[in-house]
């Protein structure tokens, strides 16, 4: 097996995550799509770290994880706030700026 199979898997997962963001309406599921994309990049980072024999890739994956955790906290807080005021978790209902 070639090590690039991992990169192909990461690419497929990233594309699925991007499609989830584009297609789903529930804000929480959209957020899960973002998480899937971040995970896919992490897999690519780890694979490239192994490919090049350089630990920097793993360190970057670690940083991605930490930033993703912070992002999830703030994003979910925003979703909860929007749900409180608008009684909906659908991304289509947040259209107050629509002219």
């Amino acid at each position: 097996m070639d090590i690039t199979n991992y990169v192909v898997l990461a690419a497929v997962l990233f594309a699925i995550g991007a499609t989830t963001v584009l297609l789903r309406r529930n804000a929480i599921v959209v957020f899960m799509g973002v998480e899937l994309m971040l995970n896919a990049t992490n897999l690519a980072f780890v694979t490239f770290a192994r490919l090049h024999g350089d630990l920097t890739g793993q360190v970057l994956a670690f940083f991605v994880m930490v930033v993703a955790a912070a992002e999830v906290v703030v994003g979910l807080a925003i979703i909860v706030t929007i749900f409180r005021t608008r009684r909906s978790a659908s991304v289509d209902d947040v259209n107050l700026l629509k002219g």
Partner: peptide, 14 residues
């Protein structure tokens, strides 16, 4: 359109 973009992204990355 979303499905098309997703498949296109997968094709480009692949």
């Amino acid at each position: 359109i979303g499905l098309l973009i997703g498949i296109g992204l997968a094709a480009v990355l692949g």
